[in-house]
Design a protein around this nucleic acid. Structure first.
Length: 341
DNA sequence: CTCCAGGGATGAT
DNA sequence: ATCATCCATGGA
């Protein structure tokens, strides 16, 4: 089964796939198996090279011929990584992250796959997002085969749009099911044209994405960075917020999230999204275990700890089974979808 | 067991 | 405009 070698200097496959930007690659042997678009591949890291094997596809010869180009484009091997890293600000935290994440690239993900996956990501750990992605693919995706093992592609917009909330909830989506379904329907109806949005400015693109159910500033920035190649987009999640407060605003207990956002958009420069991903992966892997415990910075440092107050009531109220579809046929509860989209 | 996670929508100040 | 609360789920 055809092996292709692709020149890939300055690229670390494992670091890239483990950095929390993509969630469907599975480690098999010395390589990783996953779908790139509609074709299933096994990718293995070599010395300055990627070894790629292709599974069965509907159009074998055509796909096989285009494979190197597709793979190189997907992993963004054309990004001038040295220049990008050189554009990062020169401070201790950034330098540590840059060194730790050597070879990490922001890859080019399919728009719908990226959007749908990050709608599922809210208040979920990376391991959980992988689990949800797998459940969605196995239930709604198309089966592909490579090396005697079956892997499923990410489900199409139409397939998810014609599913139901209760069916989506079987994939451990929880409250995210309604948002994923509503967004899938908007995209499938053409009211949200993900491809056409490529032509928009960063500001307009963010506005369009934020109008989708289940998409706020953070997820919009993730989709902009990982699927629209907007390398300035700077998603601020709980990890990045900790890094910013701890490394860039130490002691300032009353730094607003608004201030953090302004800082992140100017300080990190033209490739702020790249810088953000380096800081994120560094904080999650190197900083968490065997290091600084990350102080956690409780807000409300003044008066009144208010011991419990709720937090256990819902555990008691949680009845068994029947999540009930909550009957809002199109879930169009987001006001911003009103008017000209 | 508790705690927390690549947040967002909503309603109350 | 900011702030609190709820939303489900499962790994650590």
């Amino acid at each position: 089964m055809h092996l292709v070698k692709i020149h890939a200097p300055d690229f670390d496959l494992a670091t890239t796939l483990d950095s929390g930007q993509v969630f469907h690659w599975e480690k098999v042997g010395n390589g990783f198996v996953g779908a790139v678009g509609d074709s299933l591949v096994c990718v293995e890291q070599g010395r300055n090279v990627l070894k790629v094997r292709c599974g069965r596809t509907p159009q074998p010869t055509r796909q096989r011929r285009a494979l190197p180009r597709i793979i190189a484009h997907y992993f963004a091997l054309d990004h001038p990584l040295a220049e990008i890293c050189a554009s990062f600000p020169n401070d201790p935290a950034m330098s540590a992250a840059r060194h730790f994440c050597h070879g990490l690239r922001i890859i080019r993900q399919p728009k719908w796959e990226c959007l749908a996956t990050f709608i599922c990501s809210s208040m979920k750990q990376v391991a959980h997002i992988r689990q949800i992605s797998k459940a969605l693919r196995e239930r709604f995706g198309a089966a592909r085969q490579i090396d005697h093992q079956v892997v499923h592609t990410f489900p199409s917009v139409q397939r998810l749009a014609e599913s139901s909330e209760s069916e989506l909830r079987k994939c451990a989506l929880g409250y995210r099911a309604k948002n994923l379904l509503a967004t899938a329907r908007l995209v499938s109806l053409g009211e949200a044209d993900l491809d056409a949005w490529s032509a928009l400015s960063d500001t307009d693109l963010r506005e369009k994405l934020c109008a989708l159910p289940g998409v706020g500033a953070k997820i919009a920035n993730c989709v902009m960075l990982f699927a629209y190649e907007r390398l300035r987009a700077f998603p601020i999640d709980v990890w990045i917020e900790r890094v910013l407060r701890e490394k860039y605003f130490p002691g300032n207990g009353k730094t607003t999230t608004q201030r953090l956002r302004e800082f992140s958009e100017t300080y990190f420069g033209d490739h702020g999204g790249y810088a953000q991903q380096y800081l994120f992966h560094y904080a999650r892997t190197a900083l968490r275990k065997s290091g600084a415990p990350i102080p956690q910075e409780r807000n409300t440092p003044l008066h009144s700890d208010r011991k419990d107050k709720g937090k256990d009531a819902r555990t008691v109220l949680r009845k068994s089974g029947t999540p009930r579809d909550s009957s809002t046929p199109l879930g169009m509860t987001k006001r911003r979808m009103r008017g000209r989209l």
